[in-house]
Nucleic acid binder design. Sequence first.
DNA 1: AAAGTATGCCACC
DNA 2: TGGTGGCCCTACTT
Length: 542
Amino acid sequence: MPAPSRPRKRPTIIVGSVDNSSSSSSSDDEEEEEEEVEDRVDDEDEEKGKGRNGSLSGKGAGKKAPAIIISLKKVCKVCKEEGHQAGFQGANYIDCPRKPCFLCKMPGHTTMSCPHRVALEHGVVPALRKNKQTQLDYVFERQLMSQIPKPRVTSLEFHPTMNSVLLSGDKKGQIGIWDYSKPNEKTVYGSIHSCIVNNMKFDTRNDIMLYTSSSDGTISYTDLETGIGVLLMDINPNGWNGPSTWRMLYGMDINLDKGLLLAADNFGYLYLFDTREKVKIGESILIHRKGSKVVGLHCNPTQPDLLLSCGNDHYAHIWDIRRLETQSFLASLAHGRVVNSAYFSPHTGSKILTTSQDNRIRVWDSIFGNLNLPSREIVHSHDFNRHLTPFKAEWDPKDSSESLAVIGRYISENYNGVALHPIDFIDTSTGHLVAELIDPDLTTISPVNKLHPRDDILATGSSRSVFIWRPGGLKVEDKEAERKKEIIFCNTGKKSAKGKFNESDDDDDGDDFPSKGKNKQQKKYGGKSDKAGSSKSKIVKI
DNA sequence: AAAGTATGCCACC
DNA sequence: TGGTGGCCCTACTT
């Protein structure tokens, strides 16, 4: 990480500035699938006598050039062994057979034959969705500003009371405010943080105020109307002394009852802040393995004394806020790898949902029961972390049964020969995939997703844009097929999203962002685009 | 337009 | 035990 500069006091405010130039469509990158290796290139019969080598210099003129031998062995890209190949074939990725299954991590088979990657029996989805129009209702794309590249979204948060307002935080530290009922109004605060915005929480008692935590090591309390923020906490008071000492804030949550802000860093420490007195409370407390990142914090929605934390040490811990000391956790939830997120259920707070880099979503049905083992483990592809914001399964706050969750999928799906990455809706009480969002406009992996607290709306953040989807009903109540249809229905909801966008785009600011050039970055694969798309996703209950 | 790179974890010694 | 090279489907910049 480059040395983060200190956040400036006065934020930059960019309103409604749109880069239109970048939306010109580029020619199709026809990417040849797998160049057949030429074992031998022989120029013998090529333009014989013309002396390709030597029309100017006499050297070698008239002499036949020796045959050029290129010996390229077909070697697996993954294990470098001969005899097989891994990688994309068309839009399908073939695993290296010498490696454990990419999906479930067990040896003996590959992703394609993984028992967790079963073709769904309901048949309807692959056939139907191919014919559907885009289900985009609004797309916020690349309009942040002209000079600054596309937002790489790292966090999303809906406004607690204003239904059409969504906030986004990104890799650069910018905070975007989108009112999707007014697509032409957007505000970006550029200098609240100097790098990744990891967490945003509204002050629900005064909901124009926003708490944010960032990898720049600060907590900011920002007035969203003016963009003017107060620096509440800076855990690098001595500035930049190299990457090994720089502290970054990842997890953050607000405990309204106790007037507490809790935040945790990449070395395992928890910080407490009194939001009323505006002072830091006590010393930081080691709550995960020393030196390992605390990835997430969540306060229980019904029991103010309970805190949930998760970290890179492969654990999630439940704490009593009244007794926070190293190792004093009430319970410890073991995971196979890094825990990307851990959330109490939104209403009762009695369930726990975690996402781990071992490609499993785990559910504990009751925090009052035996917590030694999760109630369920759901195999799901989300383990890529190096260059991406970690995937996090998020509860649907509208689901009173506390079972529906949304999470982006890493492994791609063959969509008419294009590899796309769906967003999955999972019934965590059964492990079933109840719906998946696949769309030609959704070309990048989407690790950040948030369901609206009241409306049937999904916000998706990816490496280059913020999407708002209106997927119709997402309630978990009917038969699975019904629910799938609801998603498909949403696909058809707008016959021409394009037309709609253009309609609303008569404001002469040159902003036609949603409709133009949106597919230009799609990877096209020369290979067979047949019904390989029916290789359905794999969500399965263990 | 191929090569570089930002970037995080983990295995390895 | 810390330092470091290597990655399993990236995405973007030059």
